Simulated scan of single mutants.
Amino acid sequence: MKEQLWEYILSVRHNSPLVHNITNYVVMNNTANALLAVGASPVMAHAHSEVRNMVAIAGALVVNIGTLDEYWVESMLSAVDEAKTLGRPWVLDPVGAGATTYRNEVLAKLINLKPAVIRGNASEIMALANHSLVQTKGVDSIHQSTEALAAAEILTQQLGSVICISGATDIIIDQQRKVFLHNGNSMMGKVTGLGCTASALIGAFTTIEDMDYFDGTIAAMALLSVAGEIAALQSAGPGSLQINILDKLYNITAEEFFNLLKFEIKS
């Protein structure tokens, strides 16, 4: 499986897919640079007059609700509608799910449009599935990824989406399969927007021909987590880690990827 995941990484590098992001102010620069580092081409566009046209020329759409407002919500819904019409994959990042009534109302509309992939932390995934006693602390998770597994199973059965739970262990599931990734570094949680970066990278990997979204999500998460693990070894803190992750996304080798990647396939 490692060899196939590496082939997907090379495919993104060689094909430079255009990824349309309707994302938040906090992470635009970070996610654009990460997409460029892996070989993809980012565009951030949310104007009502062009979102449908932008979806039409992009390989995938990523919707991130981090800094919501009413104008952007209309842009998101229009873009997703166009993606569905054209058969383009779209990825949802439900930042802060469960934090406010407005956020939950927007997410209810978006998940009804059945994203190809949903990526969030454990608290966000649990909130999306309407688990009892769910709390979020802003956009941070107060739950471990394994605690959200039942919620992810509910979502994938209801929506048919691939569900990715980010955490110390990244969990990717669909209606039949589960993969647990055991890479990364705890310092990654101190860098703003790395979860959003993961969602953007997933968008790039959903564009690969002849590959299902489950495998693409695994490849994207494996690449980011291994790059983060390597980058942490030469970083003095979160500031240098952010830069070093970008560099490693750009120059990671097959040998580094194969030697460090740790995963489990579960039934």
Rank of each mutant, 00 (worst) to 15 (best):
V55L: 04
L201A: 10
I173T: 13
K2F: 11
G87V: 04
L246T: 09
T23W: 09
M28K: 07
S166D: 01
Q4W: 07
M188G: 12
H14K: 15
L194H: 01
T217Y: 01
S49L: 11
M1Y: 01
Q158H: 08
A83P: 09
G66Y: 03
A200L: 07
K248M: 15
G203A: 10
V73A: 13
S123E: 00
A151P: 01
E124Y: 03
L77P: 09
L110K: 02
M126R: 07
V43C: 15
G203E: 07
L224R: 06
F205V: 04
A151K: 07
A127V: 00
G237A: 10
L181N: 05
N53K: 14
I118L: 07
D247F: 08
M76S: 13
V12T: 07
Y71S: 13
D140R: 02
S123I: 00
M211Y: 00
V55G: 01
E3F: 07
P115E: 02
Y25T: 11
Y25P: 04
A45K: 02
Q135F: 10
E147P: 08
G66M: 05
V91N: 06
G66W: 02
K190I: 01
Q176L: 12
I9G: 03
N33H: 14
V55A: 02
N21T: 12
E124A: 06
P17C: 13
I243H: 14
K2C: 11
V27H: 01
E255M: 13
P238C: 05
F205Q: 05
M54P: 03
M188N: 03
H14L: 14
Q158W: 00
L86R: 06
N33I: 15
N29T: 14
F257A: 12
E74P: 00
A47V: 10
A150T: 09
L36R: 09
K266N: 08
I165L: 05
V12Q: 08
P115S: 04
C164A: 15
V191M: 07
H131D: 12
Y250P: 00
G66R: 03
N104E: 09
G193V: 01
H20Y: 04
S166E: 00
I111K: 07
S267G: 10
R88Y: 13
N30C: 05
Q242V: 08
G184C: 09
Q176Y: 05
S41W: 05
N24S: 03
D81V: 10
N104I: 04
S225T: 14
A122E: 00
D174G: 04
V26I: 08
I65Q: 03
G138V: 02
M54N: 02
V106H: 05
L155R: 00
R103L: 04
G216C: 05
D210Q: 12
K262E: 15
I142G: 04
Q234A: 07
L249Q: 02
Q242P: 09
L261S: 08
L92H: 10
S141T: 14
S161P: 10
H14W: 01
A232I: 08
V27T: 15
M211K: 09
M211G: 01
A254S: 11
M211T: 14
Y213V: 12
D81H: 14
G167W: 10
L5E: 04
N24L: 06
I171P: 06
T101R: 12
M187H: 00
A150K: 10
L260S: 14
Q176P: 00
S166T: 14
P42I: 11
E229N: 10
A152S: 12
G189Y: 00
S75I: 09
